[in-house]
C-alpha cells in the first residue's frame, strides 16, 4: 500500500481521537445550553479550575496559600498529604457541585427571564472571575497532573497495523482512554436524561421554563443540577487535557476547540457534540496533512471554523440541533 495512503489513514484515526477530546469540552457547553439556553463562556475556565482543584487537593496544596502568607506573614503551602487520585476526584466533584450552587445562588437566580445576551455576558464575567480565583487559590505555576491516565504509543495497535500494512500506526493511549471516557460519559448522560426523574425534569425545563414551573419543577434545583453535571464534564475534560500539557492557564483555551464542534453538531444535542467533534477532528487533521505543507501549515485553528461555517450555511441549527421556526 502506498505510504501516503497509510499516513493519511493514521492521520484520520488520530483526527477521530482528537475529535473525542474536543467533544469532551463541547459536552459541557451543550448540557448548560440545553437546560437553560445559556451559552456558557466560562466552560473552558471551568475545565481549568476543576483540573487545578484536582491537582491542589491531590497534592495537599493549601488553597489561597499565597494570599494567606501575604496577609499574615506566614509561610504555609501544603497540608503534607498526597491523596489517591480517586479520593481527590471525589473531593473535586464536591467542589464543582459547590461551585454550581454558588453560580445559581449568586448569579443566575437574579437573572431569571433576562435576555440570552445578558446571561451570556454574565458567563463572561464568571469566566474572568473564576480565572482570577483559580490563580489566587492554587497559584499560576504549571502543575503536573498524574492520576494514572496512560500515555504514549499504544504498542498493540502499532504491532497489529505493522503486521497488516507494514507500517505501525501511532495512537496515543491517552486518546484511547479519552474515547472510553467519552463513551461512558455520553451513555450515562443520555441514560440520565431519558430514564431518571431528574433527567425528565431537566428536559421539561429545557422545553419550556414556564410549563415546567407550573408542574412544580424547581428551576433553581435543575440549574444547580445541570451546572454540577457540566462541572463534572469540565473536570473530565480538564483532567484529560491537563494530563497532556500539565495544568496551566492554557487549559481554559481548549474552549476555542469546542466552538466549531458546537457550530457543527448543534448546541442542543449530546450526540451532536460527539459527531461534530469527530468531523472537526478528522477534517482539520486531514486538511493539515494534505494541504497544510503546501500553504505553510498551522491550518488547524482556522480550518475547523471554516468547516463549521460550511455546515452552518446548509444547516444553521447544526447537524443535530433543533430547528427553530418562528411564525409570524
Amino acid at each position: 500500500m502506498p505510504d501516503k495512503f497509510l499516513f493519511a489513514m493514521e492521520v484520520m484515526l488520530n483526527g477521530l481521537m482528537a475529535g473525542v477530546l474536543y467533544s469532551l469540552v463541547a459536552l459541557g457547553f451543550v448540557l448548560i445550553f440545553k437546560a437553560s439556553g445559556i451559552f456558557n463562556y466560562a466552560q473552558g475556565v471551568m475545565a481549568l479550575f476543576a483540573a487545578l482543584t484536582l491537582v491542589g487537593i491531590k497534592d495537599g496544596q493549601i488553597p489561597f496559600a499565597h494570599l494567606i502568607n501575604a496577609i499574615f506573614g506566614t509561610n504555609i503551602h501544603h497540608f503534607g498529604w498526597h491523596l489517591p487520585a480517586f479520593v481527590a476526584i471525589i473531593f473535586t466533584v464536591i467542589v464543582m457541585i459547590g461551585f454550581a450552587w454558588l453560580v445559581q445562588r449568586f448569579i443566575f437566580r437574579h437573572l431569571v427571564n433576562q435576555e440570552p445576551i445578558i446571561l451570556f455576558m454574565a458567563t463572561i464575567g464568571l469566566a474572568y472571575f473564576l480565572e482570577g480565583v483559580g490563580d489566587l487559590m492554587w497559584g499560576s505555576d504549571i502543575k503536573k497532573l498524574d492520576v494514572g491516565i496512560p500515555k504514549g504509543m499504544n504498542e498493540t495497535i502499532e504491532l497489529l497495523t505493522y503486521n497488516r500494512f507494514g507500517y505501525g500506526f501511532f495512537i496515543d493511549n491517552l486518546d484511547i482512554f479519552a474515547t472510553f471516557l467519552a463513551v461512558i460519559l455520553v451513555t450515562v448522560l443520555v441514560g440520565f436524561s431519558q430514564y431518571t426523574k431528574q433527567g425528565r425534569a431537566l428536559r421539561a425545563v429545557a422545553d419550556d421554563h414556564q410549563a415546567a414551573l407550573s408542574v412544580g419543577i424547581s428551576l433553581g434545583y435543575i440549574w444547580v443540577l445541570v451546572w454540577s453535571i457540566a462541572g463534572v464534564v469540565a473536570l473530565v475534560a480538564g483532567t484529560v487535557w491537563g494530563a497532556k500539557s500539565g495544568v496551566q492557564f492554557s487549559l481554559s483555551l481548549i474552549a476555542l476547540k469546542a466552538l466549531p464542534v458546537l457550530m457543527l453538531g448543534g448546541f442542543t444535542s449530546i450526540p451532536g457534540a460527539i459527531v461534530g467533534g469527530l468531523i472537526i477532528g478528522v477534517g482539520e487533521k486531514l486538511f493539515e496533512f494534505l494541504v497544510g505543507p503546501m500553504i505553510g501549515g498551522a491550518t488547524e485553528n482556522w480550518f475547523a471554523y471554516v468547516l463549521a461555517l460550511v455546515f452552518l450555511v446548509f444547516r444553521p441549527q447544526g447537524l443535530f440541533g433543533e430547528r427553530i421556526i418562528e411564525r409570524v
Binding site: N14, A18, K244, S250, K257, E284, K285, E288, F289, P293
Partner: peptide, 21 residues
C-alpha cells in the same frame, strides 16, 4: 523543513505525525 504550530499550541498531533512519518 519548517512545521508551524498555531497559538497556543495545545494540540500538535498533526505536527508530530508529520515528524514521525
Amino acid at each position: 523543513t519548517g512545521i508551524a504550530v498555531d497559538h497556543p499550541g495545545q494540540e500538535q498531533k498533526s505536527q508530530w505525525l508529520q515528524i514521525r512519518q
